[in-house]
Every structure is written in structure tokens, then in C-alpha cells.
């Protein structure tokens, strides 16, 4: 009792800090850390989902197999094409949309809600809606034919390699652009108005204000959005799954997560699927670290 009484205020704060953090740490340990460790352990075994025999330890053979497998490298390629094709436009356009919405005096809330609404839909529902749109007789072909003045042209949204990749990117872009726009809006709102006013007084026009005041001060939000959107893209699954179930060719959109699912559920090969999960985890970890490194290279901005 005396010891507690004698503790400094910082110590007391730290104790309460631990008290509040422990539930989330426990949650992370049970639902994230343990599955990661378990997946790594499983990846070292030849293990089939239905096999009642004890799994056979094979060391890193699953990793060795994957690194030599053209299928796995195709999945890596499909994942990177999708990620680059989606997260860069998402970061750029969500920032532009956020600036656009913040500059509006009217319909501010309406725009926020309108852009955010697709994010509320489940990925499966979103993909199902877009499947109807991409049907050869659907809205996508009709719109393109009207816009480009073509008659009865089938743009093969779900058929050719390039188009099916573009279609998955469009679905994801549509679904998540609003979500990241809201995050940017929060970031923009946290920049003190006095800084913009000071810049205007010093003669800065709108572009200079955006480039020299808004963008540098928005750097933490931009880093957050780019990391979150990149991770989200690397984990993409539902759109590709539903598209391939509906007749789209698998190879161009066989992203790593889809390959993991098929290896585990269709082929029952949980050992190899776990190895793929660990590699994906490594990729995500590496690119997150890389983004942090790159973002820190310019130093912190403060006015």
C-alpha cells in the first residue's frame, strides 16, 4: 500500500495503461498471434485436412515447392498487379475527393455519405452487384457502347485477362474509395485553419496552399491510408473468388489469398496453404516496413 502510495504519477499512469491495453493484447495474442504461429508450425508439415494420420514433418519443403511453383509465382504476379492497380489510384483519388468535399460549402455530409456507402456493403454483395453489371448484357457494356458510340460491342469484362483484372480493380476501387476519403477528410480537418489563412495572407494561391501546407501536414494520414489500402489490396479475396465462381478465368486473378483458399479447401493441402499464408504475411510485413522507411525519409513536417 505504501509502495503504491510512494509511486510517481508516471508509474501509476503506466499501470493503468497496462490495465487498458491488456484486453486488446490478449485479443491479439489469441486471434492473431496464435494463428500466425500455428500457421507457421503447420507449414512445416505435410498435412491434409481430412487425414487422420499424424502430419509428417517436412521442414521447409512446402516453401521450397512454392518458390519453384509457376502457379505460386503467377499468384504473386496477380496480387501485385491488383495491388498496384488499386491502391495507388485509391490513395490519389481519395485524397482528391476529400479535398473536393472539404472545399464544398453545401452537401458536405451528403457527399461523405454517398462515397462511404459502398464500404458498408459486404464484399460478396458488392461483387455480386458488379457481376450483374459486367454480364455481357449488363450495364457496363451498355454504358461503354453509348459513350463510345459502338454498337453491340462486347467488352468482355469477365473474359479476357486484361479486362477481368481491370474489373476486379474497379470493384475494389468503387468499394473502398469512400472509406479512405473519410480518413483523409479527418486528416484535413485536423490541419489548423490559421495555417491556411497565414499562407493566403503571404500570397499563396490554392495550389500552393495545397502543395506546401495541406500535403506536407497530411503526411501521417497519407502514410496511414497508403499502408491500410495496400494491406487491404494484398488481402483481397471475395471479388476474385466470386468472379472465378461465375465463369471468369482463374489465372489472371488467382491472387495469393485465392490460391491459399483453393489449396486448403479444394485440395485439402493445409500445410502448403499455411506456407503460402506465411509468405503473404512476410510480403505484407516487408512492404509496410518499406512504406514507413520511405515516409520517414523526408522527415517530420511541423509549422
Amino acid at each position: 500500500m505504501r509502495r503504491i502510495f510512494n509511486m510517481g504519477i508516471e508509474h501509476k499512469k503506466a499501470r493503468w495503461g497496462w490495465f487498458f491495453v491488456i484486453p486488446s493484447l490478449a485479443f491479439f495474442a489469441v486471434f492473431s498471434f496464435y494463428p500466425i504461429m500455428n500457421a507457421f508450425y503447420t507449414s512445416l508439415f505435410r498435412k491434409r485436412l481430412l487425414d487422420l494420420r499424424p502430419p509428417k514433418f517436412i521442414g521447409f519443403a512446402n516453401y521450397e515447392y512454392l518458390l519453384k511453383s509457376p502457379d505460386f509465382w503467377n499468384s504473386v504476379k496477380a496480387t501485385f498487379i491488383f495491388t498496384l492497380g488499386t491502391f495507388i489510384p485509391i490513395v490519389v483519388f481519395s485524397l482528391l475527393l476529400a479535398v473536393f468535399i472539404m472545399s464544398r460549402r453545401r452537401f458536405h455530409k451528403f457527399f461523405q455519405m454517398a462515397y462511404y456507402s459502398p464500404a458498408v456493403l459486404s464484399s460478396v454483395v458488392a461483387a455480386a452487384i458488379w457481376l450483374l453489371i459486367f454480364d455481357p448484357r449488363g450495364l457496363a457494356n451498355t454504358t461503354m457502347n453509348t459513350l463510345l458510340g459502338t454498337v453491340g460491342k462486347d467488352y468482355k469484362w469477365l473474359a479476357t485477362s486484361g479486362m477481368v483484372r481491370l474489373s476486379t480493380i474497379l470493384v475494389y476501387f468503387w468499394k473502398y474509395i469512400g472509406y479512405f476519403t473519410i480518413i483523409f477528410i479527418t486528416g484535413l480537418a485536423s490541419i489548423p485553419q490559421s495555417l491556411h489563412e497565414a499562407a493566403r495572407i503571404d500570397g499563396a494561391n490554392g495550389w500552393k496552399d495545397f502543395w506546401h501546407i495541406t500535403l506536407p501536414l497530411l503526411k501521417p494520414t497519407t502514410v496511414l491510408v497508403s499502408i491500410m489500402s495496400m494491406l487491404q489490396c494484398l488481402k483481397t479475396f471475395s471479388t476474385q473468388y466470386l468472379f472465378t465462381q461465375s465463369g471468369a478465368p482463374t489465372e489472371p486473378i488467382n491472387v495469393i489469398t485465392l490460391n491459399i483458399y483453393n489449396t486448403a479447401i479444394r485440395d485439402h493441402n493445409i500445410g502448403r496453404a499455411s506456407a503460402m499464408s506465411i509468405i503473404l504475411f512476410g510480403i505484407m510485413l516487408f512492404f509496410t516496413w518499406l512504406q514507413f522507411r520511405v515516409s520517414k525519409s523526408g522527415g517530420e513536417v511541423d509549422y
Binding site: K156, T160, G247, P249, T250, E251, R266, D267
Partner: peptide
């Protein structure tokens, strides 16, 4: 034990000639 996988491989082959040229 592997019929589901083999079926998906035939699917890939047919789709590649029908859709991807």
C-alpha cells in the same frame, strides 16, 4: 482424392482457349 483439383485444371485449360486465346 484430387478430382476437385483436376476438374479446376481442366476448367483453366478450357477457359484459356475459349477466353484468353
Amino acid at each position: 482424392e484430387s478430382s476437385a483439383k483436376i476438374q479446376s485444371l481442366i476448367k483453366e485449360a478450357v477457359e484459356s482457349v475459349m477466353l484468353s486465346g
